[in-house]
Design a protein around this nucleic acid. Sequence first.
DNA 1: AGTTAGCACTCTATCATGTCGAGTGCTAAT
DNA 2: ATTAGCACTCGACATGATAGAGTGCTAACT
Lengths: 342, 342
Amino acid sequence: MEPTKRKMKILEAVVEAYIKTGDPIGSKAVCDVLDFNVSSATVRNDMAELSNLGLLEQPHTSSGRVPTELGYRVYLDELMKPEPLNKKEQAAIRNSLDLGADTPESLLETAAEVLSKITGCAAFAASPPGDNAVIRQIRFVRTGSYTAMVVLITSLGTVKTKLFRCDYMITPSLLEMFDRAINERLSGRLVTSITPAFIQTTAISLGEMSIMMPSVLLAVSEAAKEASVDGTAIRGQSNLFSMPELASEDGKKVMELLEKTGELSKLITAAGKGAGVLIGSELHHPALSSLSIIAAQYTAAPECSGTLALIGPLRMNYPKIISTLGYVADVVGEFLSELLDA
Amino acid sequence: MEPTKRKMKILEAVVEAYIKTGDPIGSKAVCDVLDFNVSSATVRNDMAELSNLGLLEQPHTSSGRVPTELGYRVYLDELMKPEPLNKKEQAAIRNSLDLGADTPESLLETAAEVLSKITGCAAFAASPPGDNAVIRQIRFVRTGSYTAMVVLITSLGTVKTKLFRCDYMITPSLLEMFDRAINERLSGRLVTSITPAFIQTTAISLGEMSIMMPSVLLAVSEAAKEASVDGTAIRGQSNLFSMPELASEDGKKVMELLEKTGELSKLITAAGKGAGVLIGSELHHPALSSLSIIAAQYTAAPECSGTLALIGPLRMNYPKIISTLGYVADVVGEFLSELLDA
DNA sequence: AGTTAGCACTCTATCATGTCGAGTGCTAAT
DNA sequence: ATTAGCACTCGACATGATAGAGTGCTAACT
């Protein structure tokens, strides 16, 4: 069909113009950008039909048109082409990430930082799911006569510490004993396998030792539990302030959501595994109804991948931002695998 | 002087009423709350004089009065009495903090969280200055054939990690050798003493060992450097959205400031050492001109104290908030000393 | 001398009214 | 199928009138 093609072109023009200016787009403005040589009246007819299809809407009778959520969806699925980054942009990103690549955590923080700077959105980075992390080593460090610290290091390169206190004086030799005994029994195990029940049986197998310092095993299990939750980094919250779609009521709700990393994490990993872009009501969250989340997965190794995401207004430069996010995800995966592998 | 006393009472009434309602306060409203039995006309005369003294001002000729910055200052210095917490409030705070007291970091995070929830402000917690931290122990953990992790633990209970990569295959025995050699030379030293120059001389004293793995010492020195910067936690940024004094332009600037912890840190430790409350222009920062920072120090041990702070509007319930902050600081100091001491 | 009542005055917030311009939908001509 | 032309709608903006809150001042009061 021929007319359908022109209508699509018009939809594309409206979406892109609206993304640029933020003002409703009139038929004349569309005419100016369009390749077809048609008059504004023709465009008007087509736009009226696009409105009937639910792809465009007018804020009030007789002002320009604005894309509906469905309009954005069609644009994203059928019309938009990602705009690849040039060498210079790629180099800048790679360079910034390299500087932050000391530990997995700092790499993800840097990635979120870089993304938020470039895109002007709030950026979110989730570590690979902690529940298939394996305990690499557990160390004990004396911090006082009656206090010590357990240091748990996982295969994902994360480190969790926990201070504990004993009734008995803690001697270096006692700690060394524990160190050996615990590592023997726990290293190599999944962090999720350190359940209370497992701790119970370990305590029994340790015999007298565990009786002397009951808090040790508790501290270890708590550290393991913490290691099993996914780490997250959020940067660029300040960008939310500049989004006019966030009246201060909603803005507060969104910020609160960002402060509860757990809830957000679910939402975003879902997005990352799916289409990549979730908009408005697709997010199933009242505060986010006028926002858009773009997610991409990075992969450091088979079975070891996490998600990067951007939270911004519906009205954003998708072609550029999607490629940027994709490139950052690639580089993060690459650097992370360097950090973790043999 | 008798009249001065009444004027002060009036100032107090205006400040407190304004803090409650946010609307300019008229002479009639002041009359209603005042103990003195005087007419609104008398109050008007006094208020006119308070305006001349620069303590009150009117948004426009002929509407109620609002405190000036100087007015707030006088109120804070001479009129306000902190409103002590009741047993129930104290218990709730103590309980929440106890739950988070696993490590110094998590204790501070919890403190910021609790403060932001109770006060409705953004809350900031700074660890004791890292520059008098001492290296307690350095550990090496193998994470791959060519990669390993250095784990640095300080006397303040903070842990910094750094991954590094070597050209040579990393064997457990090699790491153990390093472990011994490095701990022998570095533990007990101030983290700030691990300068490039010091690393240089250490490398020489290590002889062949350092030649085999040059990246080790680099990683150690970077970890030490990171350990010397003060840790910070910020919570409750979402509360900034509800402050009407933050038009979105300024709001963004404030958020950006919160994202740069370094700058803020200086400002706040200064406040903590001084009067405790800095308002508006006293903060010497354009974006903060309509905000107020309340700071309090906690002390875990002699020479080991840090700062808690709240960032909120000028118009806040000082008597309650100041006692809350003070109480949280006391409890944090107490818990932290339990975590750290012998 | 300090306090009070009364009154004119100022300024904001709000609503109704009128005008301008952008952009539409429809109809009739091409 | 496309186009030109025209009447119409609606928001943005300026103008003007009104009500209400609160002031400053003056003259009277204790």
